Amino acid sequence: MTAPAMTKPVPRQFLTFALIGVGGLFVDMAALAVALHLLGLDPYGGRVFSYLMAATFTWYMNRQYTFAGVSRRGALRQWLRFLAANAVGALVNYAVYVVVLQLGGPVIAWVGLWPAALAALLPYAGVAAGSVSGLVFNFVLSRRLVFRQSR
């Protein structure tokens, strides 16, 4: 039996949140591959698409596991609150992604460690770096604003 969301120890919640975030990272990268290779989007538009897919996945999984004691009613409103609460984290995530795309290749090429054949992997490195950048921020806002216990 799962403990209510706000009675679970914060370190355990954070670990669950982070593990779901790793799953979200894989969803993000897979969705980015779909956006780039099947939908024909550029790396920037593709990233918006992949972020929304990953955010939906992480919202649902956190709703089911990390914050299991929270009401199941109002899913659409809760999903929108999740996107809004994580908007700053999303902007930081996207900004880090853009920096990696813009500077990653040239910097690594300058250092001589980046074979040209691996350039196609740079967007996925950007996704990973962006995801890590918003983890703690998104956890705190999700815990306090999205998945809070009803009073």
Rank of each mutant, 00 (worst) to 15 (best):
R63T: 09
M6V: 14
A55D: 02
L38A: 14
R72P: 12
Y51K: 10
T16I: 15
R148G: 11
R72G: 10
Y51T: 13
R63S: 10
N93T: 12
V99P: 03
A90P: 09
L145S: 12
V111R: 14
R47Q: 04
Y94I: 05
Y60S: 13
A75H: 09
A75N: 07
M29T: 13
S50D: 08
R63I: 02
S150T: 15
F17R: 01
A125G: 10
R143P: 01
W59Y: 15
R81S: 06
P115F: 02
R72N: 06
A3Q: 11
F17T: 04
R73T: 14
A30Q: 05
D42G: 05
G40P: 00
W110G: 13
F57G: 08
L19A: 09
G21F: 03
V100K: 02
G40R: 09
V22H: 12
R73Y: 05
G112M: 11
A35N: 00
T7D: 01
F137W: 13
Y124M: 05
A90M: 08
T2L: 05
H37P: 04
L83F: 10
S131Y: 09
L76P: 11
M6L: 14
A31N: 03
H37G: 10
F67E: 05
A125W: 05
V34L: 15
W79Y: 11
R73K: 10
P4M: 07
R77H: 08
G74S: 04
V111F: 05
Q64I: 12
G104D: 02
L25M: 09
L121P: 09
T16D: 10
L39A: 13
A75Y: 07
L103G: 08
L38K: 12
R77N: 11
R81T: 08
N86M: 05
L32M: 09
A33V: 13
G89D: 00
G46I: 02
P9A: 12
L39I: 13
S131D: 09
G46P: 00
A120V: 15
H37V: 10
R148N: 11
F57I: 11
A18I: 00
F57S: 11
A68L: 06
L36C: 12
S71D: 13
L39K: 11
V107P: 00
A54D: 03
V99N: 02
V96H: 01
V99S: 03
A109K: 14
